[in-house]
Nucleic acid binder design. Sequence first.
DNA 1: AATGAATGAGTATTCATTCAT
DNA 2: CATGAATGAATACTCATTCAT
Lengths: 213, 213, 213, 213
Amino acid sequence: MTQDLHEQMKIRRTEILAAALEVFDAHGFGHTTMDMVAAKAGIAKGSLYNYFSNKQDLFCQAFTETLSGDEADADAMIAQDRPAFEKLEWMMDRWFSRFGHFQKIGRLILEVMATAARDEQSPLSPVLQTMYAGWRQRLTMIVEQGKATGEFQDHAEPTVAASLIMGVLDGVVIQAILKVGVQVDAEFLDALKRGVLAGLTAATAPGTGGSQS
Amino acid sequence: MTQDLHEQMKIRRTEILAAALEVFDAHGFGHTTMDMVAAKAGIAKGSLYNYFSNKQDLFCQAFTETLSGDEADADAMIAQDRPAFEKLEWMMDRWFSRFGHFQKIGRLILEVMATAARDEQSPLSPVLQTMYAGWRQRLTMIVEQGKATGEFQDHAEPTVAASLIMGVLDGVVIQAILKVGVQVDAEFLDALKRGVLAGLTAATAPGTGGSQS
Amino acid sequence: MTQDLHEQMKIRRTEILAAALEVFDAHGFGHTTMDMVAAKAGIAKGSLYNYFSNKQDLFCQAFTETLSGDEADADAMIAQDRPAFEKLEWMMDRWFSRFGHFQKIGRLILEVMATAARDEQSPLSPVLQTMYAGWRQRLTMIVEQGKATGEFQDHAEPTVAASLIMGVLDGVVIQAILKVGVQVDAEFLDALKRGVLAGLTAATAPGTGGSQS
Amino acid sequence: MTQDLHEQMKIRRTEILAAALEVFDAHGFGHTTMDMVAAKAGIAKGSLYNYFSNKQDLFCQAFTETLSGDEADADAMIAQDRPAFEKLEWMMDRWFSRFGHFQKIGRLILEVMATAARDEQSPLSPVLQTMYAGWRQRLTMIVEQGKATGEFQDHAEPTVAASLIMGVLDGVVIQAILKVGVQVDAEFLDALKRGVLAGLTAATAPGTGGSQS
DNA sequence: AATGAATGAGTATTCATTCAT
DNA sequence: CATGAATGAATACTCATTCAT
């Protein structure tokens, strides 16, 4: 019975989080009221406080939950014995396959970023920190492998390369969210992959500061 | 005399905008009160409404003003008869020289993006749209020139390449703002330039397109 | 239990309306603050909004409630088989018995009239319209009966007579509210009744219609 | 020159009052701003305070001015040697000829009444008091004359009769302003006159309290 | 645990009035 | 006298949170 009760609450909690995510995404933190969330979740406003201590907490948990996708697949892939080249492609394909979701929660991410950027004490900060650290580490490992096997050129400092790759992915998502012109489709993805890989594999990085001629 | 008055008001307006920018950036739109802005600007709360019709308007103008840097230099440079390669480098150098400012107002930019992403009717949307359109056009022109002169490889679709370049710059700024590990210094910039240019000039992008097989 | 709650809220609502009526009457709509009403009702300011959506709504409901006296007695009386003469007297006696209340809320009525006169879209307009329409109809019926039975002379167009009777009652209330001299007592009422009835029963109105010549 | 200046100001003052009357009537005291009045009068907001000490004062003077029509004609007429009967008719005709104006400023009058009723210290109170006192006196004199000459029956106490006559006129104006159904035209006026005169001249006031049968 | 009525701190905005020019 | 920018008091309304039932 107690078990049932716990199950019940767990389910209810999940329902609330789903409702909260939807409402927060649609209206933003500031314009979302607890009434809205309660209404969407189909429970009384006061009941929310049996599951979450306050609005901040609810927002934070809802965001964390939706972001913490299963990253096990990526780790498993990296552990495999495959060319760094292929691994990087796989990562970008994976990112692309999630593009729709990113766009969906992109507004929320932007808001979270703005909040985290403003207040480092925010409970949201570690969430972003962890996520970025994880992906940077994975990308760094891939680049390192590539350099070790000679697939990638030596001019690429792995952590910097990882940052750039993450940067371009973030940047593209932002342009898509803001609808400032970019059309993200298979062709775009292909160009993106080619560009990134070309930057890493280019036989000779063109001498900066001088023309090629 | 009337001239003096107009001058006075123009100066006052600028002071208010500076104060507003600072406070908005520090606390975000929602947590900034008109009292705060008035106090920072050293005038009475009610006086704000002699210059701006409401809080939204004040925010929008403050943001627009700070973003609309003089882009004449970029256009002048593009018009010159120089290799695309050099032009692109110049652009990235220029971006880097403004990096400090971007970081300073980055939190504000994120908030504006979140707002614009949520409400396309927001007066902030066109500001972002215009800015992105302008820079995309400039970058596209450079890439086109590069392809025409043979500096850049043919696999780079100019508008896509422009998006990618802008994306990586945006993404890097975000990582810097969020302090998620990247250290943006001269060395980083160099790697960034090399990476971007390598992506454009690489003789042949390694066998992408069949990667999934 | 739920029943109790509903009862509780009904009672609370009535208390608020009573408090609101008092404060609105004393200070007028514009000079009454929600704080005043809340204080008088003994609840928190915010709680008012659990019962009324805004100040206008509160005002409108308070006014409507106090005006919508039970008019069933008048209708019942009219339905009886009695001389029109007696019915009209009864009506005026009834009005007189309510004179104290009219005087009490008279300032409010004047303000409502001013509002309704300025804005026909005001929710107060229909309240007045309905009230006037009801009483005009009742008076018209009485005059019609009086003409049919020969009690009243034929020169009295029923709807016009009804308007005049209502007008004199309104006018007297206004003079009483403004304290511009009239002393409304039993003697005055008697004169009023005599005057009205005389106007209806007078055998022949003295040569009006040629007066201008 | 000083004379000219005085003239100038007098003219300006009159213009302001006209503008104020229009705006106050259209929007009511509470919703009229000094800016509106200044704009309508074509001068600067601050200049209003060179002519009137504050908003209240401006309102009061504007209202007083529009109400204080020339009453000399009425007094002259009363002084003539004519039947009371004719005089009373003349008075009602005069009232009717001004009906349009009453309707026009009626909303303002209602608001003034509401204000005066609420605050006897209001400078508006004496304005109304004086106006009512004047007309009551004139009507009382006419009724007294009529009784003395035998035109009117003895049952009419002059001051009470005067109040009733004024009341019906006020009441009719109110109904017209509120647009609650009455159609005030020549026919209506005729009925009104007949009714009033009948009430005064009726050979025998019907025994109150008993039916005629 | 669930409910939802009660709470009251928090704030954008208005506008009569002043006063330096 | 004319002007209109500056002032700041005044106030309706929201909404996260609490707590009695």
